[in-house]
Structure formats: structure tokens, C-alpha cells
Amino acid sequence: MIQLHNVFLSYQKEVTALHGINLHVPRGEFVFLTGPSGAGKSTLLRLLYAALSPTRGQVVIDGQNVTRMTRSQIPYLRRSIGVVFQDFKLLPNRTVLENVAITLEVLGWSKQDINKKVFHILKQMGLEHKINATPLRLSGGEQQRVALARALVNDPKILLADEPTGNLDEENKDLILNIFRDANIRGTTVVVATHDRRLIEHSHKRVVTLEKGKIVEGPDVTQ
């Protein structure tokens, strides 16, 4: 599903963020990307949803070579990728419903279908009673669940998460992890960048450790 071949990325001539990354994530796998701050976790994720393109090497997502894509092809790639962030990135002046609906509006769904589908996913997240609230009235955990609902509402093939539990307490971390697991069980390939050791140890999934822009072989805890 995700393949990186000898990927290098330099921000400026001098600063190299990624050094010869080779990574293969098969369809339906759940992978944790970990490593200290500045190791290149976020950069790697940004390559996967084509917000950055590598200086050298190839990035292949779902059989498509992202490095060869034109600017106008990228949106169609992103429709099969859900992304969540530590800071949730919700629109504060829109309701929960409107925030989640954006994903489906982009696909051109009718309002009726959007309402049905959004209600359904919010129910899965235990947030159906907050459908008309604005994000500022929600707790951090609830906001992250709304962000997850937005990422998962169109059943993406890949879910990417950048420090998704960074701002959350233990209880909410478990809730979020369960949502990731559910999505993964339904077939979504999940890549989570985090330096939360507890989260990684709890989940018993494959771990890829990055250090200074390189993959260092870490303990592979795949069952």
C-alpha cells in the first residue's frame, strides 16, 4: 500500500530531513512511526499525503507513484487518505456536522446522503449528541474524535496520524487508539507517528523508529 524507495528530502541545500528511507507498509497493516522530536516523523507523513515531494527517491501509494503526479492529480490521491493532527485542525466557526461533512462535500455527495453518513460515523465515535455544537465547546478528546470522523467518513484506504494523542489524557488516548484499531480491522492501512511509548506498547503493532532522518531497526513487535 505504501512504498518508499531510497527517499531523500532536503529542506534547504544543507539541511537534510530524510536520508535514504526504504519502507514498505502492506495493505491493511498498522504501523507506528516513532523517534525523538526532529527525527523526521512528520516529514515522512507529509510525503505520504503529498504535501512534500522528495528530493530523491520514489514514493508509491496504492500503486501510484506520487513523485510523478501532477499538481492536479494530488487531490484525487488525497481522497483515499485520511489525516489527523495533534492540533485537530477543526474549523471553529462551523458545527461538528459541517466539519465532518467537508470530506463528503468535496466528493460531491448530496446533502441528504452527507447528513446520513456523518450521523452514522459520529454515532460510532459516540458524538451524535454533539452534532450541532461548535468545536470550541468540545473537550480535547471529543475534538480529536471529530477530526477522526472527518478523516474516516469516506472510508479511506490509508489513515495517517501525526501525534494524535499529544494533547489528550490517558482515557482519551485509549478511546482514540480503539478507533484506529477499528478502522484497521475494517481494512484501512494505519500509520501513526508518535513518541508516546505507552501507546506503542499497548497496541502490539509494528514499530518503525526514525533517528536523524534514518530508519534505525527498532523492536518489531508484530505478533
Partner: peptide, 14 residues
């Protein structure tokens, strides 16, 4: 094996 397929494409509104 993926059970995930793009949800049946609903009628487009626009």
C-alpha cells in the same frame, strides 16, 4: 485482505 471499499457512490448533488 481489505474489506474496505469506497462506499457505494451515492447520487451526486451538484
Amino acid at each position: 485482505m481489505s474489506r474496505n471499499k469506497q462506499a457505494k457512490r451515492p447520487k451526486l448533488a451538484n
